[in-house]
Simulated assay, not measured.
Amino acid sequence: MRLALFNHGRLGIVDGDDLVDVTEQLAGPGPYGPAGPLHRHIEQLAAGTVRLPDLAPGLRTPLSGAALAAPLPLPGKIVGAPVNYLDHQAEMEYTTSVADLGVFLKANSSVIGPGEDILLPYSDKRTDQEGELGVVIGRTASHVSAEEALRHVFGYTCLLDITVRSDEDRSTRKSFDTFTPIGPWIVTADEIPEPDALDLRCDVGGTTRQRTNTADLIFGVRELIAYTSSVMTLYPGDVIATGTPAGVGPLSHGERVVVDIERIGRLEVGVDGSRATPYGQRPGRRSAPAPSH
């Protein structure tokens, strides 16, 4: 199934050219809170409350006219995998990879959905796009093996890990509001039995910058879940950003960014730099010390 959030928090299944509203069928009665009905559904599945949707009576909305939102607007946590493609390691001239660095956390408040804008924070610091496969956890995972890892996956989505090339810590540089576009929906794991064999492309301003296959990941999805769950417990609704290939580059005001992943879909967002400010004017900055006399 392809599960999407649309039209002010409704949960739908993509059926051909339509979205079938299954909000109450899959998530039960509201309210659902800021995490949304899909997060509620994932948690209920993990708890053993199985809800099977019946598409026949559902209210249908043409997909072309639906206002899609981030399918998980407030994940429990977002885990990132730094330097998880060899070609990206080479282009950035890193001497380390995910195997040395481990994983990092992004703020869950950085999530936006299809059609929204990435807000560039600094006018004089480069902000890059990083197209990635996103993995949505479906069952609590702690110290799981690579062989068992996929049993803990609910589904997959397109994801952008936006990054400022500043002097701040990695988690800070990747956690600005709007820095984790997710969508356009989540494809359930049964539709993608092998996540380490998906073509991925990322275009900026109509030009392809990144093209890869997830077979080239240093830590594949199984290994990444196993490693991450050895560090921190993963809960239903958590999201793992699996890493980006070569081709990262600066974003400019007015550009469109598209991530297209085989068997999942196409996520498109905009770029807005109209509110960017100089890096030296950020809150908490420290001026140079006064000379001693």
Rank of each mutant, 00 (worst) to 15 (best):
V269E: 06
A47D: 15
E168L: 13
R263Y: 09
Y85G: 05
P250Y: 00
F6A: 09
A99C: 09
Q281H: 15
T242P: 04
I42E: 09
D87Y: 02
V136D: 08
T172D: 14
P73D: 08
G183S: 07
S97G: 13
H253R: 03
E132Y: 07
S274R: 15
D117E: 13
L234T: 05
I264D: 01
G48A: 06
R170C: 07
G115Q: 00
G131P: 14
E255L: 07
P114R: 04
A66L: 02
E148P: 12
L198P: 12
L150N: 05
V164W: 02
F219H: 11
R151D: 15
P283Q: 00
T178C: 06
A149I: 03
A66K: 03
L52G: 08
G48K: 09
S109H: 10
L267V: 06
P184A: 00
G237Q: 05
P283E: 01
L52S: 15
A35N: 04
D15F: 07
R201C: 13
I118D: 08
A69F: 02
L11C: 05
V164G: 06
V153E: 06
H152M: 04
R285H: 14
A107N: 11
N7I: 06
P57E: 00
D128S: 08
V271A: 01
L59Y: 11
G9V: 04
G80S: 10
A99D: 12
D272R: 05
V136N: 05
V136L: 10
Q44R: 15
K77T: 04
G265K: 02
L19N: 06
G65C: 10
L119M: 11
E132H: 08
L59M: 14
H143C: 11
V22P: 09
Q44I: 01
L267W: 05
A241I: 01
T212W: 00
L52R: 15
L72R: 02
R222Q: 11
V83G: 07
F154W: 09
G65T: 08
I112Q: 09
T163Q: 07
D167C: 09
L63V: 04
P71L: 05
A215Q: 14
V153K: 02
S292P: 11
N84H: 11
A69M: 14
D87N: 13
V248F: 08
E223K: 12
G102A: 06
E147R: 10
I78E: 01
P245Q: 00
P121D: 11
P245M: 03
G284W: 01
G265W: 02
V231I: 13
M232Q: 10
T61G: 13
V164Y: 05
T207Q: 15
R263S: 15
R10A: 04
A27M: 03
V248T: 11
